[in-house]
């Protein structure tokens, strides 16, 4: 597929396949096109060429509602209207399942309660979203996506604004969802270690191209990382979980600020 903004091609002749039931992480330096790729997979980005197949069917052929029942997407920065409660937000997730007029069906209600419970916000269900902590807020949005009863969940940097504890909570929540419901998850992540913790497959992107694609063990190696980010990285093993841990090799202080030019 090809995506262009004006004359500038952001993604050029890219071809990816996301494995069903897995968790895929997209990593790469700023401006490499990973968010654009995610938006393209979600059908939010007009394509200059190529197509996206969802479970074998072209995304463009699906109606909006069909698409929304299969695939949910969570943008990086979400606008939370003031006063909106968690339940109300999650109810919006049922849009594609409901008629344009009329109330909620029993099934709708079940899906909503279920989604809120799945992210552990049952106690906060009637509080305004803006009154929640950052992590809870993010989970409320994920609950909205769950209420869509989607089979694919696309997330753009879901942990960026969270503190460590909330990051860990969120990563755990996503893994649980993947395991218990078999939801395919694709997320853009900045933190390689988080990617290692959550994903079973990592794509390293640079300049609109996928440089490396494989298991965490295969991609999170000094070579591919240097190629992608232009930085020397150490690859360690997590003492408890044996997952890969990446650490930049900070150089010695030499008396002047070095440029970060790749």
């Amino acid at each position: 597929m090809t995506v262009a903004y004006g004359h500038q091609r952001v993604l050029d002749g890219l071809s990816v396949a996301i494995s069903r039931g897995g968790i895929t992480a997209l990593c790469g330096p700023n401006g490499c096109g990973k968010s654009t790729l995610l938006r393209s997979l979600a059908g939010l980005q007009p394509l200059a060429g190529g197509q996206v197949l969802l479970e074998g069917r072209p995304l463009q052929r699906l109606t909006r509602r069909e698409r929304a029942r299969t695939l949910a997407v969570l943008a990086q920065a979400n606008e939370t209207p003031p006063g909106l409660t968690v339940t109300e937000l999650v109810t919006h997730g049922r849009h594609a399942h409901r008629h344009l007029l009329g109330g909620l069906s029993a099934e709708d209600r079940r899906a909503i309660a279920d989604a809120i419970e799945a992210v552990g916000l049952t106690a906060e269900a009637s509080r305004p979203v803006t009154a929640l902590s950052g992590g809870e807020r993010q989970r409320a949005w994920i609950a909205m996506a769950l209420a869509q009863q989607c089979r694919v969940l696309l997330l753009d940097e879901p942990t960026t604004w969270l503190d460590i504890r909330h990051q860990v909570e969120l990563v755990d929540a996503l893994r649980v969802l993947n395991h218990t419901r078999g939801i395919t998850i694709v997320c853009v992540l900045h933190d390689l270690n988080q990617a290692a913790a959550i994903a079973d497959r990592i794509m390293l992107m640079k300049n609109g191209k996928i440089l490396h694609d494989g298991t965490t063990g295969a991609t999170l190696m000094p070579g591919p990382l240097r190629e992608t980010f232009g930085v020397e990285m150490w690859r360690l093993d997590h003492p408890a979980s044996d997952l890969p841990v990446c650490l930049p090799s900070f150089g010695p202080v030499v008396g002047q600020v070095s440029g970060t030019q790749a």
Binding site: L44, R64, A68, G93
Partner: peptide
């Protein structure tokens, strides 16, 4: 909720 979120729904 924002354009992307609304379109996604």
């Amino acid at each position: 909720l924002g354009d992307d979120a609304a379109a996604g729904l």
